[in-house]
Nucleic acid binder design. Sequence first.
DNA 1: GTTGACCCTCACGTAACGAGAGGCCGCAGG
DNA 2: CCTGCGGCCTCTCGTTACGTGAGGGTCAAC
Lengths: 252, 252
Amino acid sequence: MGYSVGQVARFAGITVRTLHHYDEIGLLRPSERTAAGYRRYSEPDLDRLQQVLFYRELGFSLEEIAVILDEPGSDPVTHLRRQHELLRRRIGRLEAMAAAVQHAMEARKMGISLTPEERFEMFGDFDPAQFAEEAEERWGGTDAFEQTRRRTARYTRDDWRAITAEAGEVLQAFAAAFAEGAPADGERAMDAAERHRAHITRWFYDCTYEIHKGLGETYVADQRFAVNYERVAEGLSRWIRDAIHANAARHA
Amino acid sequence: MGYSVGQVARFAGITVRTLHHYDEIGLLRPSERTAAGYRRYSEPDLDRLQQVLFYRELGFSLEEIAVILDEPGSDPVTHLRRQHELLRRRIGRLEAMAAAVQHAMEARKMGISLTPEERFEMFGDFDPAQFAEEAEERWGGTDAFEQTRRRTARYTRDDWRAITAEAGEVLQAFAAAFAEGAPADGERAMDAAERHRAHITRWFYDCTYEIHKGLGETYVADQRFAVNYERVAEGLSRWIRDAIHANAARHA
DNA sequence: GTTGACCCTCACGTAACGAGAGGCCGCAGG
DNA sequence: CCTGCGGCCTCTCGTTACGTGAGGGTCAAC
């Protein structure tokens, strides 16, 4: 039973080589092989392939997809919900582009020429908008918020990649120390906290120790943040908050 | 005057390296260089860059983009119209995907499992829509049109790749024979014509010799087809028509 | 018992950049 | 005047996600 590479490739509209590749990198290993070494794909394998293709279509790298799909506690329904959300966003983006094109056509008819900034504004948006709205609700009007808005406005796609990568490293440092049982008021923990503060200061706003402590509290109190940390390890959010507090005390 | 690489990169949300790359491959050469060899981008350069980014966003390869932008007789308004159309299509596609996701969620709730074909139907569509509309205007209602619609509906991305590749080979055969001075009523020309007919029959509809002759006429009469052949070699469209006629006569 | 369609594993090629290395250019400040 | 520093230059090598054969087994069918 099960399907051969060729069959699967035909269903999914991809090449056999692509399936070989996904097998190679461990993204989608067929759950069985025949005695002759032929790949056999089961129904769950097809399910997974579909997920892979979906996220690929939306521009995720294969590595990112692997992370998403292997996230612990990610049931199918969660994925479907997330996919729907992603599609909505992407559609919104394209609609904005369509509007921009319309705008350009009208401008051209009237003989108006656009400034460089205007010309590219449709490509300019990116990640910031994602949490910018929510950020405004929480911190709108504050100094830090204004600073963040001003600075992030100039960031390129590349900057955002760097930022998320760096954020990942910082989280990694927290997680590693926590996993190895380091105390929250120890050197490792405090150093990681300091790195976290530096990251924010570098890319977003002047994160004082006072503000940092407030953030630490938020990470525990706000479900949306807490979940992200708890998913990595149980108790991590609280541990991070304590590390931040210890670090602030150290620098007081 | 003009803008430096860094400035342009910031406007457009791309990296300097990308601009270097586009310069290297000839996709976007800055219209000027300073005495020191610095790239200077003019307003028209920015216009072109914007087009490039637009088509890139929609998944075109840089080579395809070069072809699109350097097409003779492509004024800005044509591009804008085409872009709007492409966006509309893409949005439609995503909406279909969103619907499919919704469908999958409902199916899951009811505990129904999908067949492999159903599972991947959302990835099934592809190129056909591109020229399907125009085809409908010209040949709507005819037998060949219906047949084409039914058959192409089942094609996967892979099939389309194969089809375009094969079409390329056929054109190549025509062009080579023509370039070497083969007569339009000679064996080589007629064989190429026969190959062309077989290609259409294989992938689209039963192309009789009668229909084929009509197509030959179209290739000369319709600017949109003629341009494609004349771009390869001057006089090629007429030569192909003659080869098709000779081939039809041979098989009569 | 031999085709023909399909499968396997290397292994190298390609597109579209990313990431430096090593070295000019140009101007604000001492 | 020169010196630092950000920006620009040209290589060159690395990476992702496969494409494209080469060389060779497998298996159902005629």
